[in-house]
C-alpha cells in the first residue's frame, strides 16, 4: 500500500536505508534442559503431576529469566487445573492477547502469567490459535478472576473463550465493530493543524521500522 505521509514521504517513509526490510515477529525457539533456577522444579513437578505432559506442551521457552510453557489449547484447561491444584499456582494475573498476523495459523496468542504465592514462583502459559478458529477454553472455572480478563481479550482481539459465563465486550461499547488491538485494525485519528502545517494522524506519519 502506498501512502503519502508527513513531508510527502512515500511508502514507509523510512529514511534509514533499510526501507526494503520487512520485520516479522519471531518467537524464540524451544529451550533445552536444564532451564536453570526453579524452572526445572516446575517442569519436574508438572511432569509428575500430569502424565500427558509431553503431549500437551508444544514447547518450553526460557528467555530473559522467565519460563514460558506453550500449551495446546485442547489441554489448556487440564494443565491450568493441575498447576493450580497440584503446583499451587493460586493466582492468574490476567490474560494478555497478542496478534501475530505473520505467524500463519497461529495468529492469535493468549498469554497467562501465573503466580504461586506459596512457592514465590512465576510461570507463563501461552496458547496460540488461528484467526479462522479463534477458540480457547475459558479458565474462569480455574481462576474466577479471569472473567474480566477474558472479556477484555475477547473485546480487543476477538478470541472466543469457550465456557465463559458471559463473554461480552467490556471496554468498548457493546455495538462496536472489530477488535481494536488486532494489527490490521487502524489506530485512527484526525489530522491536526499546528502553526499552519497539518500533522497527519499517528498511523499515517512516516515511521521507522
Amino acid at each position: 500500500m502506498t501512502e503519502t505521509g508527513m513531508f510527502g514521504a512515500q511508502g514507509t517513509g523510512d529514511t534509514s536505508g533499510y526501507g526494503g526490510l520487512v520485520r516479522t515477529a519471531v518467537s524464540p525457539g524451544s529451550s533445552e534442559r536444564p532451564y536453570g533456577g526453579y524452572f526445572d522444579d516446575i517442569a519436574d513437578d508438572l511432569e509428575r503431576a500430569y502424565p500427558d505432559f509431553s503431549n500437551a506442551i508444544e514447547k518450553v521457552v526460557v528467555d530473559r529469566g522467565e519460563l514460558t510453557l506453550h500449551i495446546k489449547r485442547e489441554k489448556l484447561f487440564e494443565v491450568a487445573m493441575i498447576l493450580r491444584e497440584k503446583l499451587l499456582f493460586e493466582m492468574c494475573l490476567g490474560v494478555s492477547g497478542v496478534h501475530y498476523p505473520t505467524d500463519l495459523n497461529r495468529e492469535l496468542h493468549a498469554v497467562y502469567p501465573l503466580l504461586s504465592i506459596t512457592r514465590n514462583q512465576r510461570v507463563r502459559l501461552e496458547v496460540s490459535v488461528s484467526d479462522s478458529d479463534p477458540h480457547i477454553p475459558s479458565l474462569v472455572e480455574v481462576w474466577a478472576g479471569n472473567n474480566w480478563n477474558e472479556r477484555e481479550t475477547f473485546d480487543m482481539f476477538g478470541i472466543i473463550f469457550d465456557g465463559h459465563p458471559g463473554l461480552t465486550r467490556i471496554l468498548m461499547p457493546d455495538d462496536w465493530r472489530g477488535h481494536p488491538q488486532r494489527k490490521d485494525y487502524p489506530l485512527g485519528g484526525i489530522p491536526v493543524e499546528y502553526k499552519g502545517a497539518t500533522v497527519p494522524p499517528p498511523d499515517e506519519r512516516r515511521s521507522y521500522k
Partner: peptide, 28 residues
C-alpha cells in the same frame, strides 16, 4: 501488583504493551 507484559519484534516500537492493572482486577 502492577504488571506489564511487553512484546518486542526487534524494532524501535513496542509490538504489544499490556498492563495488568491492579484496579481492574481488584474491582472485579
Amino acid at each position: 501488583e502492577l504488571g506489564v507484559h511487553l512484546v518486542s519484534d526487534g524494532g524501535t516500537k513496542p509490538y504489544r504493551v499490556h498492563f495488568r492493572e491492579p484496579s481492574f482486577n481488584n474491582l472485579q
